[in-house]
């Protein structure tokens, strides 16, 4: 069986077009003609938080665990939604407003599974992958707190099967 998953943790920016085509070629290699839908999501750095404007964010991670946790999540999505391919990319380090932070993609025989898998990947990523955001403005910075709505979104997937 061919490899149909990828998970990357990187400083550098990514190309949505390149990742989309990588996902599609993985899906084709896995099951030529078996994919009817590809859903992708790209997350960007907002220029504000609840207190006002920010200049960007700094992403800390746990080297050695982050890539394993992200790959585990992608594999779980493939198994759970019977995907033909899936991938995830998360950036680390200092990112400025409007830069890309995260990308997830899911390929499936039918669209609902692809949509659900993309939501699952993002909701669970915010629960199980060791990444921490610090927002900065000038010389000041503060850690981002977890949101109750994020916990609720992940719990929904954990409670259902």
């Amino acid at each position: 069986m061919s490899v149909n998953v990828f998970a990357l943790i990187q400083n550098e920016d990514f190309s949505h077009a390149q990742l989309h085509s990588q996902l599609q070629s993985y899906a084709n290699a896995y099951s030529l003609g078996g994919t009817g839908a590809i859903v992708t999501f790209t997350g960007l750095v907002r220029d504000f938080n609840s207190q006002g404007d920010i200049d960007g964010i700094e992403l800390e991670h746990y080297p050695g665990m982050t890539d394993k946790a992200l790959m585990l999540l992608v594999e779980q999505a493939v198994a759970r939604f019977s995907l033909t391919a899936a991938g995830a990319v998360h950036r680390i380090g200092r990112l400025y407003n409007n830069e890309q932070i995260v990308w997830v993609g899911a390929a499936a025989p039918h669209r609902q599974a692809a949509f659900d898998a993309a939501c699952f990947l993002m909701d669970m990523l915010k629960q199980s992958v060791p990444l921490w955001k610090k927002e900065f403005k000038g010389e000041r910075s503060q850690w981002v707190e977890t949101k109750a709505s994020d916990d609720k979104a992940a719990l929904k997937w954990m409670a259902s099967k």
């Binding site: 992403l59 746990y62 921490w132």
Partner: peptide
Amino acid sequence: HQLCDKQTVLNDGDEVAFFPPVTGG
């Protein structure tokens, strides 16, 4: 490198980590 609870028994050579709830995405 795997999330675990407080009752997890450790072995010689283990790497343990502590951190706040994650905020990626």
